[in-house]
Design a binder for these strands. Structure first.
Lengths: 334, 334
DNA sequence: TGGTTACGATAAAACGTTTTAGTAAACCAA
DNA sequence: TTGGTTTACTAAAACGTTTTATCGTAACCA
């Protein structure tokens, strides 16, 4: 069953295609179409269930009403929650989201950008990785609205929304130190992205400011994409070989793996051993004892992203670059 | 900066648009284009970075290479994990995913279907809700590939992939009974969807088959979309007012809420009180004690969905209706 | 009266592809 | 030489919209 086209409607209503188009797009008044014709056409449209072909529309107008969302991994709860909020807010403004996960691969990320480009998405929301600076610059040069989030690319002059990773990390460590902890470990990843680096810098700076010398051996960098068991083993090694009284996990999946490791070696979280996780997760509140966590303000991040996108879409001219850093919140539990 | 079109390439290469198109689409041999021309054109394409406009392509060919994914909520870990797997598998076959969450609203679901329809997606993957049968039937009538998953709509003759909810639930209860439990509660939701009903029926049947009379008061149905605190309170009420020695939570978010409730009223999970959660979640393994769970075979579900979609896309004719029920796995922990 | 303006509507171009139906030249067999 | 094939390439239609430019006709005005 071929679907109806505007032509079918025009024929049925015995008017021109142009007239139907004007009516569909609410330009009837402006183009002085008579009430009678408007009514007739609208009735036919309603009865027939005709829906304009968005593809043809996009081809003609040059915009798709689709926003491309490029993230690391949709199944990570941080991203899926952000995705949900963004989707919701975009939807209310008439935009749809098309997403894809990069899995931290530069090649895949580049491919995705090209894919979205050839699909003529109206805007790009990207949680980027190092190595795609040029591709993003090209998007910017072509005048596309682009917002980075979660991680910034410092070489680029582009709008960005993210939490204050440095301070959140700093505060976490300060919190440990205030409790009298001295041997503070950091479990992080080896991906070379801004937010991970900032978390590391916050860790190091807080130690320094408190007169504790930074010790390389207390920092574990796990490979991204390695399987969880390997991570668990690395964490076990760390705790078995070193005397540690506090640990900051730099992402929620690291914390999940880390907690499993602690459970396996039967290391208890108590007054003598403290844990903080970066990015909250349902498992943390439920854990016995519950785990303190750095909560990123997802709602605010999503809202800011959409605001920036919409303002960029609205202004024809090159829009200003906004870099919004939103404070994160350290939730102390138990 | 306007992006390049096939015409620009044709002019640069001093050949016709047709020739360029043939080369792009790998029909050069078939259409007997000379090696020299092929090389020349390919060189120009590579140098210029030209990418075909997918919108124009879609308009002309009638397919978009996009698969529409309609789910309840992308931030639910069950769906986000499935989404990730589906995305991945689809991507490898050259398809992109456009997703949207229904939030269990019939209106939103209908809207989404229309939206996808006007976007001419090539196929639909839907975790449906009651009330959109007609809309789905229309998709089928128009010859669109449609796969339902997670929940079936029994009135419809449509392909479906999902876990064996009835048996998984039945086995969970049987497991309780084998441990000598008598007062077995069920915490479920009031949404009227197949998979929830099946989980309920499994519960009831298992009791019956073991000579335990079904007791209405041991079943709590929480509202979908109600905030978690309300759920927690309902669960607390249940455990405070009844003598219960085992409970099955019908979804992972109910289990999360329920576990929080148990923690708050300080009810311990031990030999005298057992818990099973439907749909696994990272929090369960980590919980002390760890929580047994029904694991849906996500990988297999995703793979089957994509297989069915692709086979439907491949066959021009009306494809057969496949209903694939995949056994779930009860993982007993601790 | 003649000229401008407003009204109501439309024809046709354009967006960037794919694909059908050619064409002209070269080749080959009889 | 003829005429059929093959080779190499292309013009133009079509996909379904939006939008610009234009066209009668009627109404208005000085």
């Amino acid at each position: 069953m071929k679907s109806l086209s505007i032509k079918d409607i025009a024929v049925k209503a015995n008017v021109s295609i142009t007239t139907v188009s004007f009516i569909i797009n609410g330009k009837a008044k402006e183009k002085s179409i008579s009430e009678a014709v408007i009514e007739k056409v609208e009735k036919i449209i309603a009865e027939s269930g005709y829906k304009p072909n968005q593809i043809a529309r996009s081809l003609r107008t040059g915009n798709s009403n689709i926003i491309g969302l490029i993230i690391e991994d949709i199944s990570n709860s941080f991203f899926s929650r952000i995705a949900r909020l963004i989707e919701d807010k975009a939807y209310k403004r008439g935009y749809k989201i098309i997403y894809s996960s990069t899995e931290n691969s530069v090649d895949k990320a580049k491919e995705l950008i090209n894919m979205f480009k050839s699909r003529k998405v109206d805007a790009y929301i990207i949680s980027p990785i190092k190595g795609i600076e040029e591709d993003i610059q090209m998007l910017l040069d072509d005048g596309n609205p682009v917002i980075l989030f979660d991680r910034n690319l410092p070489d680029l002059n582009v709008s960005y929304v993210g939490a204050d990773h440095f301070n959140a990390s700093y505060q976490s460590i300060q919190n440990f130190i205030d409790q009298g902890k001295k041997n503070i470990a950091l479990v992080t990843t080896d991906i070379n992205v801004e937010q991970i680096i900032e978390r590391f810098e916050g860790y190091r700076k807080a130690l320094e400011d408190n007169g504790i010398t930074y010790n390389d051996e207390l920092v574990v960098k796990v490979h991204f994409n390695q399987d969880e068991q390997t991570t668990i083993n690395q964490v076990k090694d760390l705790f078995n070989s070193k005397n540690i009284d506090a640990v900051l996990f730099a992402t929620n999946y690291l914390a999940i793996g880390g907690l499993k490791a602690l459970k396996q070696i039967n290391k208890k979280i108590d007054d003598d051993f403290a844990v903080i996780a970066y990015d909250d997760h349902e498992a943390f509140e439920l854990h016995t004892p519950s785990i303190s966590a750095v909560q990123q303000p997802l709602e605010e991040i999503a809202e800011t992203i959409i605001k920036l996108i919409l303002s960029q879409l609205a202004s024809k001219s090159k829009s200003p670059v906004d870099q919004v850093i939103i404070p994160a919140r350290l939730v102390i539990r138990d």
